[in-house]
Amino acid sequence: MNNTQSNTIFKTIRQFIFITILLATWELSVRLCDLPSLLFPSFASVIQSFIAQTLNGELIHRMIFSLYLIGIGLSIAIISAMIITALSVCIRWISEWVQVLLAIMHPLPGIAILPIIILWLGTGPQSIIAVITISAIWPVIANLSIGLRSIPPTQIEVGRNLGLNRFKLTWFVLLPGAFPHILSGLRIAWARAWQAAVAAEMVFGASGGEGGLGWFIYKKRFFLETADVFAGMIVIVLIGLLIERVGFEWIENITVRRWGMTTHG
């Protein structure tokens, strides 16, 4: 326990040093080689515009809007995935349909169907939410059904032996049993939703008043504010890291890892 803890600390320190070296190389090469700031702004100027755009509220506003869209899209994806999975557990032909749909849709990046979504739903936030939902729903469904299938049958029989009804069996045995897969499904779903949200906004730009980080970058690109583009990317990276490293890692530590149910590593 102690050993792994100190290992993680060393790993973090090493990563930190690596990132510092990377940033220093960036700054130095910009300064020494006199690269045009339009192509490659210096790290200092990126930080400057990051601070400026944070203080004037624009970055925060954009970030909140992106997260808001992702929140809606992910919630719809998770709830519909649960309903679809529940239906396909109960009804055989639904399950076959879902398998076929999954095989077709899972490899398709959500952003690829954006043109169709625009035709059907127009260009407002609802289209971005639709792209997020479609990007996120398939990994959730796939992992949910893999998770349910991976539960040892004896555990289900123990549940039946204890007299659990269908609902209790699902809630207290099937869901926790499938949780490791559900969690990795959510991880993939989150990553895909995040990518979809930013990408969708960069394709059709959303509307001025209600754009997220993708729109921020998109707009800054057209005004050649390269340092601001970098600042937007930094926020995207930071949020991604925060959710992945702090959020999911934490959930994994207090659940799957504690239970010894890790599916990988």
Binding site: I118, T123, G205, G209
Partner: peptide, 16 residues
């Protein structure tokens, strides 16, 4: 009118 703006390529905008 900046709040009303939406960026769309011509063909998509014409279709919309």
């Amino acid at each position: 009118l900046d709040q009303n703006l939406i960026a769309l390529p011509h063909p998509d905008a014409a279709a919309s």
